[in-house]
Amino acid sequence: MAKAFKSGIKGITGYLEPAERELLRSLFDDVVSMLEPEERANQDPLAALVGLDSEAREPSDRALRRLLPNVSKNDAAASLEFRRYTERSLRESKIGALKAASLGLDKDELVLSPADARHWSMALNDVRLVLAERLDIRDDEDAGHVHLMQDWSQAEDVESYLALVYNFTTWLQESLVQAMLQSLDTRG
């Protein structure tokens, strides 16, 4: 069983079983592959280098739309223009956090610096956002139903398995954030 993250002298420490590490690694990798921008044949390499993407559009996949949301509630044109300037670098920063967290899984001991902890919390959050879309969590009531699923022996189909994975990542993120808040407090 994983242990909750703790804030201490060394930084934030945690413990995960090998199977839990494998699970997280595959979740991080899945979200990375969702976020990787598709290469287009006619792409302007210079524009790509500075983060411009004149072809960017609102994603059709709901989970991806949640990871890369519109910046304006009512102005689709403004959202699209903003997306063209910022979406590529947003994708890259998310991928960076997910890959950093994934790399951290290779070490025997989980000891997180403040930057590591931030990457981990972002990576876990993005994983949870994607799982929540797959589980159709639309409101607090839906979230409550999913939360009831705590027993791995109940995992009998994809949905119950996803719910268990969602609850595990929720628990892990909550313990990490509590440790991060504690270290914010002690740093003053």
């Binding site: 949640r66 990871l67 890369l68 949301p69 519109n70 910046v71 304006s72 509630k73 903003f82 910022t86 670098s89 947003l90 920063s93 998310k94 956090a97 972002m122 959050n125 993005d126 956002l129």
Partner: peptide, 17 residues
């Protein structure tokens, strides 16, 4: 707008108005 991108980086749902 800069804050909004940062919030999206954290996974929060942010808009500007």
């Amino acid at each position: 707008e800069q804050h909004a991108v940062a919030m999206h980086g954290y996974g929060l749902w942010a808009t500007v108005e």
